[in-house]
Amino acid sequence: MSNIRYRCRLVLIAPDIENAAERARIVGDALKGGDVATVIVPGYGRSDDEFQQHAEVLVPVIQAAGAAALILNDSRVAGRAKADGLHIDGPFAELADAVEKFRPKLIVGAGRVSDRHQALEVGEIDPDYVFFGKIGGDIKPEPHPKNLALGEWWASMVSIPCIVMGGTDPASVLAIAETGAEFAALSAAVFAEPDRAAIVVAEANALLDEKAPRFE
């Protein structure tokens, strides 16, 4: 485990489960499987109050496992739930505003970056990371080729870390690691069968331990 920091690490996107306690239990189980750098928590269209209730249950579970808890797009919920940061999936103006207001107290990441032009614009804002792909975009076994290409281009050129959205096959993390990206995001790959979530996280980590290139 000593070399985890020197290879691509996992990021999980919390699944959409109606019951907050059940959602926290399933995420907590997944985190027992091994190293996860970050868990991004979307609201999935819930009201502010419901989203806050979910976040207040989830965030402590995520943090207790040693991962950073990031709230999607809602700084108020992030503050009230004592999350580690924000994943901003919205317009660049919102990202710039969040970077200005909340860094360095909170992590602020840029989501849903879909081409090189956008990536360079986002880079000017200097977020803590850039996310290639979209939440919910994991609909095939492999990562989207465009996201892999963006990750490889970015990682070779820019010092801001990047996350690339994986596919429904947990082994898709290896293709991401091979781009030089610092983080591989999984959601359906881990949570489609909640009872196996910890096993999948363990298997993905074992694959990265064995085969992922090491950072210098």
Score class of each variant (00 low, 15 high):
1 M>F: 04
3 N>C: 00
4 I>K: 05
5 R>S: 13
6 Y>M: 10
7 R>N: 01
14 A>W: 06
16 D>Q: 12
23 R>K: 14
24 A>K: 04
26 I>T: 05
28 G>E: 03
28 G>H: 11
32 K>H: 11
32 K>M: 09
33 G>P: 12
35 D>G: 12
40 I>H: 12
43 G>V: 00
50 E>H: 01
52 Q>D: 08
58 L>A: 06
60 P>I: 02
61 V>C: 04
64 A>M: 02
64 A>Q: 14
65 A>L: 03
70 L>H: 00
70 L>A: 12
72 L>S: 12
75 S>V: 12
76 R>H: 05
78 A>G: 08
78 A>W: 11
81 A>C: 08
82 K>G: 07
84 D>L: 05
87 H>Q: 04
87 H>T: 07
88 I>K: 11
89 D>F: 11
91 P>T: 00
92 F>N: 14
92 F>Q: 15
92 F>D: 15
93 A>V: 13
95 L>T: 04
97 D>F: 12
98 A>N: 10
99 V>D: 00
99 V>Q: 01
109 G>P: 03
109 G>N: 02
109 G>A: 12
109 G>L: 08
123 G>E: 13
123 G>M: 05
124 E>W: 02
124 E>A: 15
125 I>G: 07
130 V>F: 06
130 V>L: 15
132 F>T: 02
134 K>T: 15
136 G>C: 07
142 E>V: 03
143 P>Y: 05
144 H>Q: 09
145 P>F: 05
146 K>G: 02
149 A>L: 06
153 W>I: 01
155 A>V: 13
155 A>L: 10
155 A>G: 14
157 M>V: 03
160 I>H: 12
160 I>E: 08
161 P>N: 04
162 C>T: 12
171 A>P: 04
179 T>W: 03
181 A>G: 10
182 E>N: 03
183 F>T: 00
183 F>A: 02
184 A>G: 06
184 A>I: 07
185 A>M: 06
186 L>A: 02
190 V>E: 05
191 F>W: 01
191 F>E: 14
192 A>C: 07
193 E>D: 15
196 R>F: 10
196 R>T: 12
199 I>M: 10
200 V>A: 07
200 V>I: 15
204 A>E: 13
205 N>E: 09
206 A>E: 11
208 L>H: 09
209 D>G: 07
211 K>Q: 07
214 R>F: 07
214 R>I: 08
216 E>A: 12
216 E>Y: 05
